[in-house]
Amino acid sequence: MSGYFNKTLWVLGAGQLGNMLQHAGYPLGVDVKPIDIDAESAPVLDKDDVVTAEREEWPKTPVTNALSAHNNFANQDFFATIADRFLQKSLLDKLGLATAPWQLVKADDSEAQIHQNLGERVLLKRRKGGYDGRGQHWLKQAENSEIPADWHENAIAEQAINFDEEVSLIGVRDQQGQCYFYPLTLNLHQNGILTASISPLDRLKPLQATAEAMLTKLMDAVEYVGVMAMECFHVEGKLLINEIAPRVHNSGHWTQAGSNISQFESHVRCVTGLPMIQPSVRNTNFMINLIGCELDKDWLAVEGSELFWYQKSVRPGRKVGHINFSKTGEKNIQSALEQIEPLLPEQYQETIAWLKAELLSPSA
């Protein structure tokens, strides 16, 4: 195709992440093609095409069979490991990377045995599938909670962690094995769904080197190429890995406004073999996820707002877009938050209060 590099990048999945990868590839001259896994016919790939994915696992369809069998499917062998929480946790243990104490829910395990091993409050997670709080079940001794039917051998059990806060690190590794990182991101989850993110924050800087060393160890061990996200619990100055995502990640959406190279551009560059440089970050950045909200044109009138609408039908609990802000100075941050607050549904009052508490001094 005229005007493009001699590379086509197929994305397994045509959701918002695939679309944002396509958006990032266009100015690079890379032809990025997200494809619906349920499309009626499979595409024909050239031998020099590259394949990536916007999701950890997928069913067998003509499309997924064609893409996953391609020789240039970046990180192909790693997806099966990361999509199974038992295999993911086992790999992290093998590498000596700290996580919450955990175990497989074995066929003969009782609730009493799991509580004896992991404590009074235990979170069960299905080995495969589940996100945004789905596929999870609390086992609480005080409530006599029971292991759901058919979860034995199909779930892991994790000790409940009384964490101080949740942070994430977006890392990038190129085809030569060089690693690059964005600043740590502070995240707010409500009802199990990421609602807001902030980066950078001065108070998180002491954790940056430790987080980078942890993610470098993992990416190097599996010879990863592209963007990988590491979600962590911050507990009394230490980091415990909660989840790993082998792809661009919701907590890195702020990089679209706050960096010269977004996480999406970084991923496209690395998996297609284009040169990569250390991203430079500007200003204070925060992102608000739009969850179950109808589109509101007035969001565009808020100074400095950068809206990304996913063109999806709206339903409760569904991520339908996000708004990025990249701001300097507390007055500008405060103004943006005060302008956006009345334009969001009532449940966002807690979200805005959290952003104000983290971004503004008490006197602001």
Rank of each mutant, 00 (worst) to 15 (best):
L344M: 03
Q349M: 00
S335A: 13
P342T: 08
A336I: 07
Q339Y: 08
N324Q: 02
G321V: 05
S313H: 12
S313E: 15
F308V: 10
Q334N: 14
Q347W: 08
L300M: 13
L337Q: 03
Q311I: 03
P345L: 01
S313M: 09
E303Q: 13
G317E: 08
S326F: 03
K319C: 07
Q347K: 11
R318E: 09
F308T: 07
D298M: 10
K312I: 07
I340K: 04
Q311H: 12
L343W: 00
E346T: 15
F308K: 09
S335N: 12
P316L: 03
I323R: 02
I333K: 05
A336Q: 08
V302C: 02
E338K: 12
G317Y: 00
K312E: 14
V302P: 01
L300A: 13
Q349E: 11
S335L: 07
K312R: 12
A301L: 15
A336Y: 04
Y348L: 00
L307Q: 02
T328L: 13
Q349F: 08
L337H: 11
Q349A: 14
E350D: 15
T328Y: 07
I323V: 15
I333D: 05
W309R: 05
H322C: 04
E306V: 10
S305W: 00
E346A: 15
E346D: 12
Q339W: 02
K331H: 13
S326H: 03
L337S: 02
E341T: 15
L300W: 05
E341N: 11
P345Y: 01
I323G: 02
P342Y: 06
F308I: 09
V302K: 00
V314A: 10
Q347S: 14
Q347C: 09
D298R: 15
A301C: 07
L343H: 06
G304F: 00
Q334V: 06
V314Y: 07
N332A: 01
I323F: 03
F308R: 11
E303A: 14
Q334P: 06
L337M: 13
P342H: 15
Y348G: 03
Y348A: 01
K319L: 05
E346C: 11
Y348I: 05
K312N: 05
K319P: 07
L300S: 13
F325C: 01
H322E: 04
H322W: 00
V314R: 05
R318C: 10
L337P: 11
E350V: 13
E330G: 04
G304I: 02
G321H: 02
G321W: 07
Q311W: 08
I340D: 04
R318P: 09
S326D: 10
E341K: 15
F308H: 15
E338L: 15
L343I: 09
N324T: 03
K331W: 05
E306G: 11
I340A: 06
G304W: 00
S313P: 11
A301M: 12
Q339P: 09
L344D: 05
G304K: 00
K312F: 05
Y310G: 04
G317L: 02
Q334H: 10
V314H: 11
E330L: 11
N324P: 07
W309C: 08
S305I: 02
A336F: 03
R315A: 14
